[in-house]
């Protein structure tokens, strides 16, 4: 999706219409940026200024107290720990879940394209459908299973859940990527004497950089942003960031500290935003691959 493709110009490119065009595009840029700007602006304002009225005004007094509070002192749930422990929980949950699901997806994609067998498309179809199920359908039995195997309310339990329901997507990514990978290369390696694992390790993986990045970004974003599983299966001390943020914002006790909420929201958004800014191209590819199957 490179810029400067052969677009068709509306209005034959007259200066007036070009100006209108740019104006409209800029208005929408403002629309998309506004909520983020509001969050940032108001996270460095004293609470009194927010109550005073203008969310769009620059702070009269700059303060980083809301950030400090959101990070380490705010009342989240029972204790006044700030969001820090939950931020760490999210990372502890995300890293292993991403690594495991991506690794499994890679090997699955390899098998489903290069070692095809009878019924493989049914296997793939079933994995693919698992990406789209409303997770409400698995909440009750999953809670029971996690309890039975002693992982209820733990970060490890969440890792397991995210791996299980992430395999479908990572398999889809790698399968579609490897489908375009020339089969002659596999045959050549077979003639050269490489076996199943060696072909994967030496021939496919070194050429899989882009799709590994796509899968990692997709999984990272999805798992970091998950709320449902976190809210359903985590205990107070294993909650991920999104659940903690929601608790912070929804807590009905005391004064509503909007500035702290905004700072907390930015904190929760930060990791995925950084990933997006650093590798937006791959992020978009992941979205597309998730949307346009086959």
């Amino acid at each position: 999706m490179s810029a400067g493709g052969e677009g068709v110009r509306l209005g034959a490119g007259s200066p007036f219409w070009r100006a209108v065009l740019y104006a409209v595009l800029l208005v929408f840029a403002v629309y998309y940026l506004l909520p983020l700007v509001i969050m940032l602006l108001n996270s460095v304002k004293p609470l009194s200024e927010i109550r005073g009225g203008n969310l769009l005004a620059l702070p009269k007094v700059w303060t980083f107290e809301p950030w400090h509070s959101a990070w380490s002192t705010a009342q989240v749930g029972v204790q006044a720990t700030g969001l820090k422990p939950y931020f760490i929980n999210s990372f502890l949950m995300v890293f292993p879940a991403v690594a495991i699901s991506a690794a499994l997806g890679a090997i699955n994609g390899y098998i489903l394209t290069k070692w095809r067998f009878k019924g493989d498309s049914i296997v793939f179809g079933m994995m693919l459908f698992s990406c789209f199920i409303p997770f409400q359908i698995v909440l009750i039995p999953m809670a029971k299973v996690l309890g039975t195997i002693g992982l209820a309310g733990t970060v490890s339990g969440l890792v397991m859940v995210h791996v299980v329901y992430g395999i479908g997507f990572t398999t889809l990514f790698f399968r579609n990527y490897y489908a375009a990978f020339p089969t002659e290369l596999i045959r050549s390696a077979q003639v050269d004497g490489a076996g199943f694992f060696r072909i994967f390790w030496r021939i496919l993986l070194p050429s899989s950089g882009p799709i590994i990045v796509v899968s990692i970004i997709w999984q990272f974003t999805n798992i970091w942003n998950d709320f449902l599983f976190g809210a359903s299966f985590a205990d107070f001390d294993s909650q991920p960031m999104t659940v903690a943020l929601n608790n912070l914002v929804q807590s009905s006790t005391g004064v509503k500290e909007y500035n702290v909420h905004f700072a907390g929201a930015v904190l929760a958004a930060l990791p995925t935003l950084v990933v997006y800014i650093v590798s937006g191209r791959y992020f978009v590819r992941g979205l597309m691959a998730g949307a346009v199957k086959g």
């Binding site: 045959r187 050549s188 003639v191 021939i203 070194p206």
Partner: peptide, 14 residues
């Protein structure tokens, strides 16, 4: 045996 493929099948990462 050794084989030469139509697409050459050269390992891209090597």
């Amino acid at each position: 045996i050794a084989m030469v493929f139509q697409s050459y099948a050269l390992y891209p990462s090597m």
